[in-house]
């Protein structure tokens, strides 16, 4: 009972951890270079969720001055994450561009298939 409570009380962290590990696993284990990038994106997204969930204040409203509300959600993490999302997109874009070039150069984007092509000095 206590355990489920503990999990429920911090469910946002559990989501973050599960997403993060899923992404990390994909990056490490998958030979396909696009799948790796997908994993990387999931990995980054989990951090975005971490930030956003930090900012949430129970029973508070958006940070707009409204009659009758005293508690506001902290807007700064949202702003930070907006920046981080932009960075993430840029990274993914560069990554995908590289994958396109790799496909042109090697004819494949599978790591296991590229490896034997690298025998030249």
């Amino acid at each position: 009972m206590a355990l489920t409570d503990a999990i429920a009380a911090h469910f946002n962290y559990w989501i973050v951890i599960i997403l993060m590990m899923t992404g990390f696993y994909l990056v490490i284990a998958h030979p396909n270079k696009i799948n790796k990038l997908i994993g990387l994106t999931i990995f980054q997204t989990s951090v975005f969720i971490l930030y956003i969930s930090f900012a949430y204040v129970r029973g508070a409203t958006a940070p707009i001055i409204v009659e009758g509300w005293d508690d506001y959600v902290n807007p700064l993490p949202h702003v930070l994450i907006l920046t981080a999302i932009v960075v993430g997109i840029a990274t993914t874009a560069v990554g995908l561009a590289l994958v396109v070039r790799i496909h042109r150069a090697f004819g494949t984007i599978d790591e296991d298939e590229i490896q034997p092509l690298l025998t030249d000095p």
């Binding site: 990056v27 790796k36 090697f106």
Partner: peptide, 27 residues
Amino acid sequence: NRRALLASYQYLILGTIGATFIVIGVG
């Protein structure tokens, strides 16, 4: 060399992981 692409890709993956670790820490 076409291996430059692979090197760049590998650095992209590892570099992004490193940078993300920094974001987590800062968070």
